[in-house]
């Protein structure tokens, strides 16, 4: 399935874009992690979280077509 992925902060810099499309054949967040880490150099050695439909997702969470995916670097508000 084709997933629309949003990138933020330093991860958007590494990806060269704030939005991307990813052809994803897996089902869980942990599979998405390894797929995205292959595409964005530096990501596997950094701390980041994945949000699915605007909620932080666990590695076991299931991804379905149409989900809103976001790759989030460490927070810095305040």
């Amino acid at each position: 399935m084709k997933l629309n992925v949003k990138y933020f902060g330093m991860i958007a810099e590494w990806a060269g874009s704030e939005n991307g499309q990813l052809d994803f054949s897996g089902t869980s967040v942990v599979e998405l992690r390894s797929e995205i880490e292959k595409r964005i150099p530096g990501l596997n050695s950094s701390s980041y979280q994945i949000a699915v439909n605007r909620v932080i997702a666990t590695d076991e969470a299931i991804i379905t077509l149409g989900d809103e995916i976001a790759i989030l670097p460490p927070f810095a508000g305040g």
Partner: peptide, 26 residues
């Protein structure tokens, strides 16, 4: 304040006088 710092997806780029930057992390 503690909740905002830990859980709000806000990102910050610390910009230096020469316009180079590093990303801030709470």
């Amino acid at each position: 304040v503690e909740e905002i710092k830990a859980n709000a997806p806000i990102f910050g780029k610390e910009v230096f006088e020469d316009e180079t930057h590093v990303w801030k992390e709470n």
